[in-house]
Design a protein around this nucleic acid. Structure first.
Lengths: 101, 101
DNA sequence: ATAGTAATTAGCGGTCAAGCTAATTATGAA
DNA sequence: TTCATAATTAGCTTGACCGCTAATTACTAT
């Protein structure tokens, strides 16, 4: 869960998409036109963001409108802050060997 | 810069290392013993975190002590919050086609 | 049905991340 | 020096990611 969010944000173009989207919804074509990458490439980046639940897609006639899902971004920020100091205890202890205390 | 931080946090084991390290410094051996992964594997994960400046390494006799670099985590959280709403204007507009307004 | 536009999916080549074992460096002790 | 321990680096395989072009799906309009 957190993994997919961080990985999604781990690409500059995808962060830029989030920056654009937080100002308002945009269609795939709008976004594809904003970057140097080809349309299919942008489309796949959008899919990565969607899989991470960072954006939502809604068909609007012939276009598909994308919107930022700010609550997930807030969750991600909270997860980092948990790493910093305050223990909000996310992150399951899988593949941990023992109690690690 | 932000890319390396997000990618570093994009692996569960590395987030767990950060969770452990924020409670206090640990040697590579300590950390290697906590996870199911082999020692070299853990070592490389530590290196990824170090490259992202999320941790620091200091030789202490025969061991190497790792410490969390909380300020970088705070920066990462700030970067996400910038994505959420407040415009602290990180993230350079590389590979952007135009003004995108 | 046909044509046109919007967007994704398929497929390809190249690169990079992740895991392992084995080999190597580095330090400390005898 | 020699031995033992700590940790990384080297080498390998597997699988995922990134970017492209070409092909395909989805919808609108005529």
């Amino acid at each position: 869960m957190a993994t997919s969010v961080f990985n999604a944000l781990g690409h500059p173009l995808r962060r830029k998409v989030m920056m654009v989207l937080r100002k308002g919804p945009k269609t795939s074509g709008d976004l594809a036109g904003m970057f140097d990458a080809s349309w299919p490439t942008v489309s796949r980046h959008l899919n990565v963001l969607k899989e991470a639940d960072l954006i939502t897609a809604e068909r609007k006639g012939t276009s598909i409108v994308y919107r930022a899902n700010t609550s997930v971004l807030e969750d991600a920020a909270a997860a980092i802050l948990a790493l910093v100091g305050r223990d909000d205890g996310d992150d399951r202890d899988d593949d941990m060997k023992e109690a690690a205390e």
